[in-house]
Each structure stands twice: as structure tokens, then as C-alpha cells.
Amino acid sequence: MTELHLALLAGAPRHGYDIKHEHDAWFPDSRPLAFGQVYATLARLQRDGLAQVVETRTDGGPERTVYALTEEGERRLRAWLAEPAAAAGSGADEIVRKTIAALHTGIDVRGFVSRQRASHLRRMRELQRNPPGAGAAEQLVREHVIAHLDADLRWLELATELLPSSGQQQPLRTATERNNP
């Protein structure tokens, strides 16, 4: 999150409220940023010398502190962008956890797969319907989400194909069974 805040500050000095809105505009389909998190992060950036307070404004409303990047902050941002993102594949996603749990317990696997598929497709459908006036960058963010949902679905298809094709669903063997064949 740190580096993303640096990126949000890179265009122009901003106060916390601006940062939150900028973030939500950049990532229209992800969880909105909480104000608390913005201020906590800005405080940390200032402490580490990556950002500095440039101005305190009061345009009739509440007092607002405007932050800007320091040289160190900009260097950090550039270094971050110079590194590719980790090809995570952590398996920690909720969908993986649920599917694996369904396979292990054997609780309505087919139903689960069907519901998951429908839910993913519905989401993809929403995302594909571009709101009028959406910018290229916003569309690209949506496309990224779509691609991920598509990857999830492909994985889910694989899971369906690996299921026993007919008859009652058999739970996978438990760890104890595996250890004592």
C-alpha cells in the first residue's frame, strides 16, 4: 500500500481526502480505501521521510494538510515500479479455499461449482458493460479483473473435469487415510 500512496501523490501535492478519491477512481471495482488507512499511511510516509507536509489549507471548511513526495519518496516509487509484481499464485484466494474445502468435505460440490460459476460470470458480465464515458485506464483496470475472473473459472472448470463424472460424490481421502493406505 505504501508505494501505491506514493504513486497517488506523484501527480501533484494532495490532501488525504483527495488521495482517497483518486484511489477509488483508479480502482473503481475494488474495495474503496478507508479514510483511517489513508491518514495512517500518510503519517508513516512522513515519518520515513518519503513524504512531507507542504501546506495546511482551510478553504472555509475543516483544516486540511497537503502532502507531497520527497526526493527519497520519488526514488522509492521508481524502484517499486522497476520491479515486476510477484507472480503470486499463493492459493490463498477465497475461491481456492472454498473449492478445496468442498472437495475435501464432499458437501454439494457440483452445486458449489455451478453457483460459483454463475456468480463469476455475472460479475464478468457487469464488468464488460462499460459505463459511458469511462476512460481507457478505468477500462483497463476492469479488463484486469475480468482476466482474473476468467482464470478462476478456467481453474474451476479443471476442478469440475477432475471430479468423478457420475454417481455420488466421494470426499477425498482424509490425511489419516492417506497416511495409512
Binding site: S114, R117, L121, R122, R125, Q128, I146
Partner: peptide
């Protein structure tokens, strides 16, 4: 292609010649 399927109002999924699920997407 799932992206193609997601354009539809309804998905009908076949497997070995039979319908295995049919859901509305809209």
C-alpha cells in the same frame, strides 16, 4: 471462452451430451 459466455443473458452448460446447469446471468 468465459468472456464470451459472460456476454449472454443465460448460460447453458453441456457435458457429455446433457445439460448440467442452466443459470440466468442478467
Amino acid at each position: 471462452d468465459n468472456a464470451v459466455a459472460a456476454r449472454a443473458d443465460r448460460e447453458v452448460r453441456l457435458r457429455a451430451g446433457s445439460v448440467v446447469h442452466e443459470v440466468a446471468l442478467s
